[in-house]
């Protein structure tokens, strides 16, 4: 790549860890020729191609859609999950938000329930198990009534969608001092609590999902609100409040 007049350079302080059982450490790398339009991950691509060319082991990180919707990417950048820009995933963050010459610290999403696989890649399958416990409407394919036979108000649908937009990236857990996954779980519970289709299983859903959440080793929520601040989809913590109310009601009823 040719050097351009607006090229930026950085010192990257990156968490390197060979495997789940190894201990890791922060290692410094230098990159230059970074242009402001690059995304954060494209900047890491540049580093990795450089490392590969030198015969060194590239930094392991994961990504897929690179447009903020699949939830695969996720790095803690200078101490903040997904970096300094609110409402953005790591892949959506552009280098123009940094100043040339900065030292940037890059770490994985840390939590006991997210074991590190390698370098910046963590295992988030605990989220899948929370969903498996009840994050759906139970019915068999083919038995659905005509879509317009169940009316859903525009507001309810909107509200439900605001929660359903969660991409399951795990930033909420990484940011929480208790490593709680209440925002993730709350968003699912809330999505269904607001619409008619979610009512028949409402009690069972919240009970089972919270039980699994706890069993997976995620912590409890103590209202720090860090999760909401880093959430790339800006899921509101009112979803957690709703989940707690539902949990209470469901516990009393069963």
């Amino acid at each position: 790549m040719s050097s351009t007049s607006n090229a930026m350079k950085f010192t990257l302080r990156i968490w390197r860890q060979k495997g789940p059982k190894d201990s890791g450490k922060l290692v410094d790398y230098k990159v230059d020729d970074i242009i402001p339009e690059m995304s954060f991950l494209e900047m890491l691509d540049v580093l990795n191609e450089k490392l590969a060319a030198e015969g060194k082991d590239p930094v392991a990180f994961d990504s897929d859609c690179r447009e903020g919707i699949c939830g695969t990417c996720g790095l803690v950048i200078n101490g903040i999950a997904h970096g300094p820009l609110a409402g953005t995933t790591t892949c959506g963050l552009r280098m123009r938000h940094f100043r040339s010459g900065d030292v940037i610290t890059i770490e994985p999403f840390r939590a006991d329930s997210f074991p590190i696989i390698k370098d910046l890649v963590v295992d988030r399958t605990a989220f899948d198990r929370i969903v498996q416990a009840g994050g759906y409407v139970s019915f068999n394919t083919g038995s659905a009534p005509d879509a317009n036979s169940v009316l859903v108000s525009k507001d309810a649908s909107h509200d439900s969608m605001d929660a359903a937009t969660c991409i399951g990236c795990g930033a909420c857990v990484a940011a929480c001092p208790n490593a709680s996954a209440h925002l993730f779980t709350g968003a699912k519970v809330y999505q269904f609590a607001k619409i008619p289709q979610g009512q028949p299983e409402r009690d069972q859903r919240v009970l089972n999902m919270i039980t699994t959440h706890d069993k997976e080793g995620f912590g409890d929520c103590s209202n720090h609100g860090e999760c909401e601040a880093v959430c790339p989809k800006q899921i509101n913590i009112k979803t957690i409040a709703q989940m707690r109310r539902d949990y209470l009601v469901a516990s009393l009823r069963t």
Binding site: Y136, V137, F139, T141, G142, S143, A144, P145, D146, A147, V150, S157, H158, S160, M161, A164, Q191, F192, I195, Q197, G198
Partner: peptide, 10 residues
């Protein structure tokens, strides 16, 4: 019909 019954927020 299937997606609406799943609660997809159309």
């Amino acid at each position: 019909d299937q997606a609406a019954a799943q609660g997809v927020p159309f």
